[in-house]
C-alpha cells in the first residue's frame, strides 16, 4: 500500500517536475484571488455607497439604477459564464493577459456580493449615528466616511470574510479560459498520469489550508475590532 502510495506520489508530483504545475497554479490562484478581492472591495464599496445614499436621500437615482442593473446581472448569472464572456466576447479580438481577465471577472463578480454586504452593513447602523455626524457639521460624505462605514465594516466583517473564501474557491473555474491556476494544475497532472486521486486531493488540501489560514486572520481582525469598543 505504502509502496503504491510512494509510486503514485512520485509519478504525480516528482516525475517530470510535475509539482511545478501545482506551484505555478497556486501562484496564479493567489494572484487572481488577491487582486479580485481588492477590486471587489472597491467596486462593492462604491456601489453600496451609491445604493445607500439613494435609500437615505433619494439622490443619485440614475447611478442607483445602473448599480441595480449591475447587481441583477452579476448575481443572476454564473461566474463561469461571466468569465467566458469577458474573455471571448468583451476582449474578443485581442491578446490579453489572462490573469488580468480573471481578476476583472472575479472582481466584478465579487463586487456585486460585497456591495450587498456593505449596503446591509450601512443600513444596519442606527440613524442616530448619522444624525449625530450631520449635527456636528459633517456633510453626507464625511459622515459616511468617518462615522458610518467604519462601524458598518466591523459589522459585516464575518460576511465579508465568507465572501472572500467563496471567491478563492470560485477561481477554480478560471481553467476554462486556459489559465493555469491550482485546479487546472491538478487537471494537467491528471491528464498526464491518469491518476485522479493524488492531484485532486493535493489541490483540495491546498485550498483547505489557504481557507483555514485566511479564516484565522479574519477572526483575529474581528477580535481586535470587537475589543476596541467593549
Amino acid at each position: 500500500m505504502s509502496d503504491k502510495f510512494r509510486a503514485d506520489f512520485y509519478q504525480n508530483f516528482i516525475e517530470d517536475d510535475r509539482w511545478k504545475y501545482m506551484v505555478n497554479g497556486l501562484g496564479n490562484t493567489i494572484k487572481i484571488t488577491f487582486f479580485a478581492v481588492l477590486l471587489g472591495i472597491v467596486l462593492g464599496f462604491l456601489v453600496a455607497l451609491i445604493r445607500s445614499t439613494y435609500e437615505k436621500t433619494r439622490k443619485l437615482w440614475f447611478l442607483d439604477m445602473l448599480c441595480r442593473v449591475y447587481l441583477t446581472v452579476i448575481r443572476g448569472t454564473p461566474v463561469l459564464i461571466q468569465l467566458m464572456i469577458i474573455y471571448f466576447v468583451v476582449f474578443g479580438s485581442m491578446r490579453i493577459d489572462k490573469v488580468l481577465v480573471s481578476v476583472l471577472a472575479f472582481g466584478i463578480n465579487s463586487g456585486a456580493y460585497v456591495a450587498e454586504i456593505f449596503r446591509s452593513g450601512i443600513m444596519s447602523i442606527d440613524n442616530g449615528q448619522f444624525e449625530a455626524g450631520r449635527s456636528l457639521g459633517f456633510n453626507y460624505r464625511q459622515t459616511m466616511f468617518y462615522i458610518v462605514t467604519p462601524q458598518a465594516f466591523k459589522n459585516v466583517l464575518p460576511a465579508l470574510g465568507n465572501e472572500f473564501i467563496v471567491l478563492l474557491k470560485e477561481t477554480s473555474v478560471a481553467g476554462y479560459i486556459a489559465i493555469q491556476e491550482l485546479t487546472k494544475g491538478a487537471d494537467i497532472i491528471r491528464s498526464r498520469t491518469y491518476n485522479a486521486y493524488m492531484p485532486l486531493l493535493a489541490a483540495g488540501a491546498i485550498y483547505l489550508v489557504m481557507v483555514m489560514i485566511f479564516t484565522h486572520f479574519v477572526q483575529k481582525l474581528e477580535r481586535r475590532l470587537r475589543n476596541s469598543d467593549h
Binding site: 471571448f88 479580438s93 485581442m94 491578446r95 490579453i96 479560459i177 486556459a178 494537467i188
Partner: peptide
Amino acid sequence: IERYNKGFEAVQAMLQGKI
C-alpha cells in the same frame, strides 16, 4: 501552452488572435 477544455475553444482563441 494554453490548455483549453474544448478543442474549439482553442481554435476560437486563435481566431481572436489570443494565441
